[in-house]
């Protein structure tokens, strides 16, 4: 499995550096995008020093961890957005013929190295939060933060997989999975600012709270129960999205020309 992942990653990298100008532009722009998001958050924090009782350090940590999770999703799981194209172009068949889980094959078919720029800036932001007294300081805390960010990436993957699978129903390439890019902005804020019904959604159905808010509470305030919630949210959303994908494939997929 590790060898397959490595080979896929190398193939992706090779195919990406052929278009080197686009590749370099994408890495630079993705990094800049995270810098601009950080600046916008700072403009807001200049007017509102405390958000739901959380100071600048906490909010920047939430931002950094969300961006880290998103950048990891962008690097490793972004190909879940291609399901619509695979179905429309009849390419899904080849994933079904090989002796490996189709979801894993879809992931391996397209890593995206463009996310490196965003990943670097996100790590810098978490380090900045540590400097403000809220982020990880020791090696073990950094390892913990990395694991939690990976859980966040898996949550973003679950959301994008579920939404992209709906293209089996809508029968278009139009990508609902792109919604992940819009809603991740709101994972940067404490989920306590949302009204009850929306808080229930971001804590369970679309668990954005497990990407930024809970991880920040766990790392900065050592609230251990948050780690349990993160693991539960990751496992349940992954299981749910895989079930939805498999069910939609079983019921709606009609091979080439769906």
């Amino acid at each position: 499995m590790i060898r397959t992942i490595f080979i896929s990653a190398m193939l992706n990298f090779k195919s990406r550096i052929i278009y080197r100008w686009d590749f370099l532009a994408a890495i630079g722009v993705k990094g800049l995008e995270t810098v601009v998001s950080y600046l916008l958050l700072n403009f807001l924090l200049a007017k509102v020093p405390l958000i739901a009782g959380y100071d600048r350090g906490h909010v920047i940590l939430m931002f950094g961890l969300t961006e880290l999770a998103f950048a990891l999703w962008h690097c490793f799981f972004i190909n879940s957005l291609s399901i619509g194209s695979y179905v429309r172009e009849g390419q899904m068949d080849r994933f079904l013929l090989r002796p490996m889980n189709p979801v894993i094959q879809i992931i391996l078919d397209g890593f995206d190295e463009d996310g490196w720029g965003g990943l670097a800036v996100a790590i810098a932001t978490v380090a900045l939060a540590a400097n403000l007294g809220a982020g990880p300081t020791s090696v073990s805390e950094w390892c913990c933060a990395s694991l939690i960010a990976f859980c966040g990436a898996l949550i973003f993957f679950s959301i994008s997989l579920t939404l992209s699978s709906l293209s089996l129903w809508s029968q278009t390439q139009g990508n609902l999975g792109l919604v992940v890019m819009d809603i991740r902005v709101f994972a940067r804020f404490p989920s306590t600012i949302y009204p009850g019904w929306l808080r229930a959604i971001v804590s369970s159905i679309v668990p954005l709270a497990a990407c930024g808010y809970w991880p920040a509470l766990f790392i900065a305030d050592k609230q251990v129960e948050c780690a349990v919630w993160i693991v539960l949210a990751t496992a349940s959303s992954l299981a749910l999205s895989t079930i939805i994908f498999n069910e939609l494939m079983r019921r709606l997929y009609e091979s080439s020309g769906t």
Binding site: A52, L163, L166, S167, W169, S170, Q171, T172, G174, L176, L178, V179, D182, I183, V185, F186, F189, I193, Y194, P195, L198, V202, V206
Partner: peptide, 25 residues
């Protein structure tokens, strides 16, 4: 492709609801 239009609108409405909730707070 109205199903796709409908789905993308639902996504946009979720993002709008979150945006409005942040600003309401």
């Amino acid at each position: 492709y109205r199903r796709n239009t409908l789905l993308s609108l639902i996504g946009a409405i979720l993002a709008l609801a979150l945006q409005l909730a942040v600003w309401a707070f």
